[in-house]
Amino acid sequence: MVKMVKAAGTFGRSGTHDFVLLRASAIIMALYTIFMVSFLVSADTLNYAVWTNLFAHLGMKIFTMLALTSVLIHGWIGIWQVITDYVKISGLRAFIQFVVSVALIVYWLAGLLVVWPVEGV
């Protein structure tokens, strides 16, 4: 009874799932943003050593990937909600959903492959 409407483009299993995922991912990204801005604002010297040492920590790698996973989920559901409202031509809507989703997945992969080998100085 729950899944009456067959929505194929979004990320969540149902509207309620989307609702929860969107907000949960938003909270994670907000925390990451606050952390990163605080770090950058308070860092008196910012050089390659400082920057790589930050991302050398496993915790920072996990937090970054958690944030990028949240970006993927948030962006996917977010764009689906926007284009289902505004893009009435289904072919165009499918194309936009595809391009955005692929871009988000590429960001995720790029993030993983970049932070994974960082060892710091």
Binding site: Y48, W51, T52, F55, L68, A103, Y107, A110, G111, V114, V115, V118
Partner: peptide, 11 residues
């Protein structure tokens, strides 16, 4: 996208 590029390049 730009931020991820900057992160990748800088690291």
């Amino acid at each position: 996208g730009l931020l991820v590029w900057a992160l990748a390049t800088s690291l």
